[in-house]
């Protein structure tokens, strides 16, 4: 243990380079994890929005609302009907954009319609339901998210599988890099290892300090990578949120820390494995 720390200190520059390379690889790895997480989230959000919006301009009394609701519920494929009064929609809209400019100066009246939001059981029915809703008396307009909806399920699956394969490949690439960089520090100590063997050190004894050093390097690299990821992600997320507020960027602390924990665990694991593989290669040569 002491030996590992001492050697870490003595071969300072080499270890620093190794930590740097691992930091970079883990940062890239973490960056792609975050990307996959966000893309999944956006697609999830889109596919959750398989709904039809029914707009009605004129003001509605409570009984009229109830009448519309029962008519809409009876349409094929409708699972749920939510009513969003125009005042509420306007207030939400203003809140969302208040940070950027004050709408009250530009628009005096509420330009938004009353909206019934229909959740549709299946994508196949969206078009048909929308057509029928348009025929209901008093309905001004009907909108739905269009034909790309049909492809979302395929897209979601493709993203999941693609992302998984990509992360797997990236893990493997990171392992290769880590093994090879730690191998440099091991090679730098080849004489030391050969003398250890000469005076009768067992293989496990020789491996010990290198594995500890590997873990140390991996943990350090992981820590740096997390710092870089956290600060840059927070900055980028804040930017995106203020520019495109409707984009569902993941800011959930729990989900993010899961990723950070994965990155540091991977760093530690790769460091350990890297240390082990590098020494074993050297031990096997004789």
């Amino acid at each position: 243990m002491v030996e590992a720390f001492t050697s870490f200190r003595r071969s300072g520059l080499m270890s620093m380079i190794t930590v740097g390379i691992i930091t970079i690889s883990l940062t890239i790895f973490g960056f792609f994890l975050l990307l996959v997480l966000n893309t999944g989230n956006i697609i999830g959000e889109i596919s959750a929005k398989m709904d039809v919006s029914v707009y009605i301009q004129k003001n509605l009394s409570d009984s009229e609302i109830a009448a519309f609701r029962s008519q809409l519920v009876s349409l094929p494929g409708v699972e749920k009907v939510t009513f969003v009064p125009k005042n509420e929609a306007w207030r939400d809209f203003k809140e969302k954009f208040a940070a950027r400019f004050s709408l009250d100066d530009v628009v005096e009246d509420n330009p938004l319609p009353n909206t019934f939001s229909l959740e549709i059981r299946s994508t196949d029915l969206v078009e048909k339901t929308a057509r029928m809703a348009k025929q209901v008396d008093g309905v001004d307009d009907v909108r739905y998210s269009g034909s790309y909806l049909e492809n979302t399920k395929i897209l979601v699956d493709a993203m999941r599988i693609g992302g998984f394969i990509f992360v797997l490949l990236l893990t493997f690439a990171t392992l290769l890099i880590v093994v090879n960089t730690i191998r440099l520090t091991v090679l730098a100590r080849e004489t030391e290892i050969s003398i250890m063997r000469l005076v009768g050190a067992t293989n496990s004894f020789i491996r010990g300090p290198f594995i500890i050093e590997g873990i140390l390097i991996g943990v350090l690299g992981g820590a740096f990578a997390i710092l870089i990821l956290k600060f840059s992600y927070d900055a980028i997320a804040a930017r995106i949120l203020s520019a495109l507020p409707f984009l569902p960027v993941v800011v959930d602390k729990k989900q993010l820390s899961t990723i950070y924990i994965m990155v540091s665990a991977l760093g530690m694991f790769l460091g350990m494995l890297g240390g082990y593989i590098s020494v074993s290669k050297l031990l096997k040569e004789k």
Binding site: E3, I195, M196, V199, G200, A201, F205, I206
Partner: peptide
């Protein structure tokens, strides 16, 4: 001392 350390 190294020769002793590495033999535990």
């Amino acid at each position: 001392a190294f020769a002793l350390q590495v033999t535990g």
